[in-house]
Design a binder for these strands. Structure first.
Lengths: 209, 209
DNA sequence: CAGAAAATGCCACCGAGTGGCCTTAGCTGT
DNA sequence: ACAGCTAAGGCCACTCGGTGGCATTTTCTG
């Protein structure tokens, strides 16, 4: 992430990208996603609208920078991870490590992004798609790396379960205002994973109240 | 679903709605979602664009009519279902019953919708959001009906797992071209549910190839 | 310092989606 | 049967997200 060593061109590009994500997140949070036009954003950052769309495929994407950082790190982690034992545990630790790799300031940005998702359907939809694409990519890479069949239901499901645990952890953590920072999020993640066996064995009767 | 008994006004409304969904699915499949303008669609059905947006909140929604039919039936089923034993089994049978409730012609429409999702990111994103909303709604209703805590991780996870099984079944069935019709989809669904216990117990080692 | 290559800015354009307002058509009373 | 009410549809103008084309600036290379 250190960009001091990059050529000037790349540095400038990275700088405008970051300015766009930061300003966008601030404006969207202050005024709402729908009530912030792209013109306002690009005016504030002093770039042209054309430049914006060379950096981000859509208005929604600039709001989800925190998500994409996490997911790309996660995929790299999946590629690198040792699987000796429960596959579910491997994914849990991949998530844990990815979270630890996020740079300082990511936590608050992620929190703001989630808050935005909660009130803006369009952003939520994009976020879910990223999540799903990541799940599928993880499935494909794991399938290629380990010996599992290309369409093995079990591998697919275990990844979906891991991601579901992550999503629940992130959601509940966000709903409570992000208590304890990233360590707090980490704890919720562990709790969610720990609850998985009980979940599928869960029984209940109709409470007639 | 029989609309012979409705007042004339309602009948007409239902008819235009159906004409829109059918024509939309046909046009989108033939020419692609992005290369079909709303003007073409409303011209074909002979309604104004304004009328379209009184029936559907967005262009994507008209393509997902098959999804919404299934999910609303599923939610009704969740409200009605008996839970005595494994909660996971209750959801499996709710999905099974919902599928059986779909009217004739739903199968092909659903298949076409899924094919559309596979090639059109915007439609896919909307579809995922519907799915997620359904999951959350099922969670909220179940939480209210049975005695579980409002934010019980286990209940949330078991629903996510059930939906994940459904999604995998639908995806693999679609990828193969929908073999065996709805009965074939049903079989994939059973197989996916059956694989859940093995999934979370799945172990593997790095295949160094 | 010259020239290639990449990034940016500018402008015109398309299509999705909305608000306002008027007209039409189905539903109510007498 | 008829008059009035109400809901739905049609029409029009407008905003905003997103794209293509082309000229201009800026950085890299020799």
């Amino acid at each position: 992430m250190d960009l001091r060593e990059l050529p000037l061109r790349e540095r400038k590009k990275a700088r405008t990208r970051q300015a766009l994500t930061e300003t966008a997140l601030r404006l969207f949070t202050e005024k709402g996603f729908d009530h912030t036009t792209l013109d306002e954003l690009v005016d504030a950052v002093e770039v042209s609208k054309r430049t914006f769309f060379r950096n981000f495929p859509s208005k929604e994407d600039v709001a989800l920078a925190a998500d994409t950082e996490l997911w790309s790190t996660f995929l790299a982690e999946v590629d690198a991870m040792e699987v000796s034992g429960l596959v579910l545990d491997a994914f849990r630790s991949a998530l844990r490590v990815s979270l630890a790799r996020m740079d300082e300031g990511w936590g608050p940005r992620f929190l703001a992004t989630r808050a935005l998702c909660a009130v803006t359907p369009a952003v939520e939809a994009h976020s879910l798609r990223y999540c799903d694409q990541t799940t599928q990519a993880a499935f494909a890479r794991m399938g290629a790396r380990t010996g599992f069949d290309a369409g093995d239901v079990r591998l697919k499901l275990v990844i979906e379960v891991a991601i579901a645990a992550w999503r629940h952890a992130a959601l509940s953590w966000t709903a409570d205002g992000g208590p304890g920072g990233l360590a707090g999020l980490q704890r919720r993640l562990d709790a969610a994973f720990a609850a998985i066996p009980e979940s599928i064995a869960l029984t209940g009767t109709n409470a007639t109240r």
